[in-house]
Simulated scan of single mutants.
Amino acid sequence: MIGEIVVSFLLVVGGIFGFVGSYGLVKLPDQMTRLHAPTKSATLGVGAVLIGSLVWFPTQHGQVTWHELLITLFLFLTAPVTGNVIAKANMHVNWREEEIPKPSPDTSWSTYGDPMHEPLNKG
């Protein structure tokens, strides 16, 4: 009984987060703001559904499955990295040389680093 309530709650929460993430992906104005919807709320939605599945099997069938836990951990580890890579790629595609000069690889490791400063650790 309690397991069913917990699973139902997690499925509803996952559905709400998934809906908000997909709605934000469609309605937000530009690429950089649209990136936040799937990486934040949709990730939490899928995570809630997977945790609900993780709770369901031991409470209803008496067997523990670790697949959902591993998928959830992998999702929570890879979604922020993917969002960061997509954001950096978008910044490089939309680079305007007149606003910020593009740093050379020798002087700065970051995307918007200051090309006038030398690196801190000279070899």
Rank of each mutant, 00 (worst) to 15 (best):
T65W: 13
K27H: 07
T43N: 13
A79P: 07
I16G: 03
M1E: 05
F19E: 15
L73Y: 07
T39D: 13
T43H: 13
K27M: 03
K27S: 04
H61A: 01
K27L: 02
Y23I: 13
H36W: 11
R34C: 09
V12A: 02
L73H: 08
L75S: 10
S41C: 07
V49G: 07
V55H: 00
G47H: 04
V13L: 02
G18V: 00
T65H: 10
H36K: 15
S53V: 06
G3L: 06
S22I: 03
V26F: 08
I51P: 12
G45A: 01
K27F: 03
T65K: 09
I2C: 02
F74I: 04
T33Y: 14
F9R: 09
T78W: 13
T33I: 09
T59N: 09
D30Y: 10
A37D: 06
T39G: 12
V49T: 15
L10W: 00
I2N: 06
S53P: 02
V26Q: 09
G45P: 00
Q31R: 04
V49Q: 07
L25K: 10
K27D: 01
H67L: 14
V46F: 05
T65S: 14
G52M: 04
V13H: 00
V6A: 06
F76D: 00
V12C: 02
W56P: 01
L54G: 01
Q63R: 12
F19M: 08
V12D: 02
H61E: 07
G24Q: 05
V64D: 11
F76Y: 06
V49R: 08
L35N: 05
V64T: 07
A79G: 07
I2V: 14
G14I: 06
G14H: 03
L28V: 06
M32Y: 15
L54P: 00
F74Q: 15
M32E: 10
G62K: 14
L28M: 12
A48Q: 08
V64W: 09
H36M: 13
G14F: 04
V46T: 09
K40C: 02
V26G: 13
Q60G: 11
M1S: 11
G62S: 14
P80N: 06
L70I: 05
F19N: 13
T72V: 01
P80R: 14
V49N: 05
I51A: 12
L35H: 02
Y23M: 14
I51R: 08
T72A: 01
L11T: 02
G15E: 08
F17N: 03
F74Y: 11
H67E: 11
I2P: 04
T59D: 09
S8Q: 08
T78A: 12
P38N: 12
T39K: 01
G14A: 05
V81P: 05
G18I: 00
W56N: 05
G62A: 08
F74N: 15
G3D: 14
V26A: 12
A79L: 08
V12T: 05
W66P: 10
W66H: 15
L77M: 10
A42M: 11
